[in-house]
Design a protein around this nucleic acid. Structure first.
Lengths: 302, 302
DNA sequence: TTGTAGGCGTTATCAA
DNA sequence: TTGATAACGCCTACAA
């Protein structure tokens, strides 16, 4: 019992006794047994990471996030379980959850979870979350395109009603308005062939000196291909800026100028936020927007 | 106690009682408490994944492996901890270990581990392991190059004394010998600029109709760049085959023909093997070589 | 400030 | 075949 107190409530123990106990712990290589601790505290020392979207295993975005979470966790004797199967979600035996890919329809069961939850990705339902600062990212991209004197600045967006998309568009719109320019947004499914097709179909309408600001690297890839097919010169006559900076940006030739998300760091932060929330018995943690970074590569003038 | 028996030793319980208990469990939504189980069994329900190499966080190889391990684990109520810091390895509180990046000098402390260990990567120290079948992979690559009538087939290897490299070279050598051809191996550090430099320096010595079989996609990338710089035509006059198939193969232009490792699957298999070893109280599991797949893309004739 | 008793949920062991 | 008891290692609550 005294040992327990030395560890958890050292202020209740006299300095001499405390030191004695600490010496003994050192000599005996004492390590608290986490299973016993878990049992007594009604804890599991496990957190679950739920990926509610279909995981395309070739897309390293979530793997990178998982890696970050694992990193953020490993100091604290906490372990991680991955849950990808939407059908039989096993939600027992965890002290908390990190959830990504949640849609509005998931609120129902998320609200019923007994343990702390942190979301990855902006949401407007009051859940604590961490995300890239999508708005800031597209602001930076748009500002940069303006600074490089491209005349026409067009946004290629993703055709979903999700906060991340609204924020990205908002970053673009706000910046253009501030410069007295009229925003021009085209939305489509998040596939490179869709943006490729769109640009090729409308090629005549795009004057030289145009930048396509894309809501994803996938769309940006398609844009690059379409411009090249139609004989446009990148980056002199046409610029492209992507968003994400995970893997795909390097697949393009030339490599994409893109708004790069710090995905590993986001994972670490998610883990820390959840651990803190658990330690504070579920206290609200608020929202955390992490600034992304505009990475200059070959698809825009520098 | 009877419930415990129904779960763990059902053969010791009469069918009627067993059914009764199972009904009750269903009605009450009974879920065994894993912390209590862990305490009683002297288990932790945690396995640790040790990455002993420096993790370049932009290289998704280990992230992919981590993802695979997490997948293989999540059925079994087992959770995962990632250990990357070689300095303060925390090796307590785990039921087993998956280790990657181990060198011969690590045997000393690995031997002292009290819990089951499975290695990722070939080793010749008798540890259970799982790996890609490196030899088979390079056999396939070499056979394919021969079948496409390239005259000269050169191996660019990595300058390390590790089993995986020996196996890859062996696959190449054996195949050439079988076809009465003389192997030609050049070893260098595993960086694209090293292979690029090597080929450029020796460009005159390479006749048309040469294939470079590379021990990694990194080396293959450099080979492609060197050939292009020197005006060689890919794949008609020069072929390149890489090894790994994680991420880098898609960065090249044209995309790499490569020997693709099933990394997610390897992770899943690692998890399963370790869980089985734990269940069998540490029984030897042997070696498992998983066949890779030659992926045909743009850097060799098809 | 320190020590004692009891309980967390499971399983091994032994008794019925 | 089934039930009772103790033990796993820690923590809360209370007593000294």
């Amino acid at each position: 019992m005294t040992v327990s107190r030395v560890i958890n409530h050292p202020e209740q123990v006299t300095p001499e006794l405390k030191q004695l106990v600490e010496q003994a712990m050192a000599i005996l290589h004492y390590r608290p047994n986490s299973a016993a601790k878990a049992l007594a505290n009604n804890r599991t020392n496990v957190i679950k990471f739920l990926i509610l979207e279909d995981v395309d295993t070739t897309e390293p975005y979530y793997m990178t996030l998982l890696f970050g979470i694992a990193r953020g966790l490993d100091r604290q004797q906490y372990a991680l379980q991955l849950v990808t199967d939407r059908e039989h979600l096993d939600l027992d035996h965890a002290d908390g959850y990190i959830i990504t890919g949640a849609r509005s329809t998931d609120c129902q069961w998320i609200d019923q979870l007994a343990k702390p939850v942190v979301l990855f990705g902006e949401n407007r339902h009051g859940y604590d979350f961490i995300d890239t600062d999508n708005k800031l990212g597209e602001q930076q991209a748009t500002e940069y395109a303006l600074a490089k004197n491209y005349q026409s600045i067009i946004f290629l967006g993703i055709d979903v009603r999700e906060p991340f998309e609204y924020s990205r568009e908002a970053g673009y719109i706000n910046t253009l308005q501030r410069h007295q320019k009229v925003p021009q947004i085209h939305r489509m499914g998040n596939h490179s062939h869709e943006s490729q097709h769109f640009i090729s179909e409308n090629w005549r309408k795009f004057a030289r000196n145009t930048v396509f600001i894309c809501a994803s690297d996938r769309l940006a890839l398609g844009a690059v291909r379409a411009i090249q097919q139609n004989g446009g010169r990148i980056p002199n006559d046409f610029g492209v800026i992507g968003f994400d900076g995970v893997f795909l940006d390097q697949v393009s030739n030339p490599k994409l100028t893109t708004v790069k998300q710090p995905v590993v760091q986001l994972g670490e932060l998610l883990a820390r936020m959840l651990l803190q929330k658990i330690a504070q018995s579920g206290a609200q943690q608020g929202e955390l927007l992490v600034p992304p970074k505009l990475v200059l590569r070959g698809t825009i003038r520098t």
